[in-house]
Nucleic acid binder design. Structure first.
Lengths: 245, 245
DNA sequence: GTCAAGACTTGATATTGATCAAGGAACCCG
DNA sequence: CGGGTTCCTTGATCAATATCAAGTCTTGAC
């Protein structure tokens, strides 16, 4: 990236960012936003499949996805990975380092992605004087916890069919929240990543997509998904605490 | 409980509490501790199987287990429950309310239990003037997130054998941390609860315990567990991020 | 444009762990 | 102390999903 491009990117402040209402700045006053903005680092974009951090790396910032997508995951000695979450534009990741000051999981991009870094020590200092920021951070942290809890329920109690339906509904509601179509979107992740997120085999993901298509509940072609029957998807999920994650 | 007993219990300050080094007060100075202590509510003990909060209840405090044990869980429409975590003395629960101000999961006691309530609005105010408290809360929240992540890896990628081994190691290390034996302890939860935590059937839990006993890895009688071969248990867990949860 | 590598799909078979069923042990209550 | 209830264990069978094995489609590199 050229110096000119870099400068241009840096100029996109939180205040001008279309995602600010989903992101850390939500609920802040103009003055507060300006103070926060001064600290935010905006790294350049990265390609797909680039690692952002890994276990043992120093935790120095929360990250916010601006464009593209990120997965966080753990691995077993044997190599299998468990995807902990997919992070779409406006969503935060990297909180796993808060316990020890070192990250405990991996974070990698799903596609060409740009993201902001919100330095932890700066945020900590601002928390002292900006109650709204403190509350927004608590809100985001609580959201992460609840998303993990919904994911635990999915992995522990749902059948493969229910898991895939939950997954589609979650992605759909998150696209909708950002102003995109809830029924027609492009999945940013591979079948393999979906399988690792849902704790099932890739082959099963493939078969289940086909089964949903055969029942005219969805139309799927590669990564393009069209939801034809949202009610049917909702009925498949017997989950009593389903919400946007 | 009589008034006299209640008063006596209230007098057990954080400073005098043997668990304070595991709990919220960790790392605070004497002066800070006194300020915090003034706000802490110490409800009386409750029996086993008592609900502490449920989804929709107002979130007004973090809770810290003093004696006994607590489980937090979600349920599906069909009734199955997924246990999100077991909380032993010195451990915190109730953070799930931070997102919306309402709890999202259930919390219930496993046995006769006493716990403290740490009012959220008071903690928030103290955070403004006590950086150490702020950091300790971040540490605890990060710990919760990491515990959930380890649990996700367990549910998504481990076999039933590995899950039970992970569970025993987790409980063992937590007893050890509190100064008790790591190899001989009484499980505070039922087989059913273990099954709901591990995402497997009760019958499977029973069979796996027997199998571990037949291999002379553990000795188990009702809820009394003796670990005979800790190395064997560790080897069963191919998890690369295993730590005390 | 062609080739190679990777991603995805589809089919056949295997296996883990669920479910169904029953009996035994501990515990609570009167 | 006795009887019922719940918890736990054990056995037999079944089903969901993993695994193994090809084969096809995409995509990117040269």
């Amino acid at each position: 990236m050229s110096q000119a491009q870099l400068v241009k990117q840096l100029k996109v402040s939180c205040e001008a960012c279309s995602l600010s209402e989903l992101c850390l700045p939500r609920g802040l006053t103009h003055d507060e936003l300006v103070k926060l903005d001064a600290y935010i680092e905006r790294p350049r974009s990265t390609d797909a499949n680039t690692q952002i951090f890994q276990p043992g790396d120093e935790f120095h910032a929360f990250y916010a996805v601006r464009t593209g997508g990120v997965k966080t995951y753990l691995t077993q000695k044997t190599g299998e990975q468990q995807i902990l979450g997919f992070h779409l534009p406006g969503e935060i990741f990297g909180l796993d380092g808060m316990e020890t000051g070192k990250h405990r999981c991996y974070a990698a991009t799903l596609e060409n992605t740009s993201y902001c870094a919100l330095p932890y020590d700066k945020l900590d200092g601002l928390c002292e004087v900006m109650p709204d920021l403190r509350h927004q951070i608590c809100h985001l942290v609580g959201h992460e916890l609840n998303a993990d809890h919904t994911h635990l329920l999915l992995l522990g109690q749902q059948t493969a069919h229910e898991r895939l339906a939950s997954f589609l509904l979650s992605i759909s509601s998150r696209f909708k929240r950002r102003g995109f179509s809830a029924t027609s979107f492009i999945l940013p992740m591979s079948r393999h990543d979906i399988a690792c997120y849902l704790g099932i085999a890739v082959e099963t993901v493939s078969r289940l997509f086909k089964s949903l298509q055969d029942k005219d509940i969805i139309q799927i072609n590669r990564k393009q998904v069209d939801i034809l029957d949202m009610d049917a998807l909702n009925e498949m999920v017997s989950n009593c605490s389903e919400e946007d994650v």
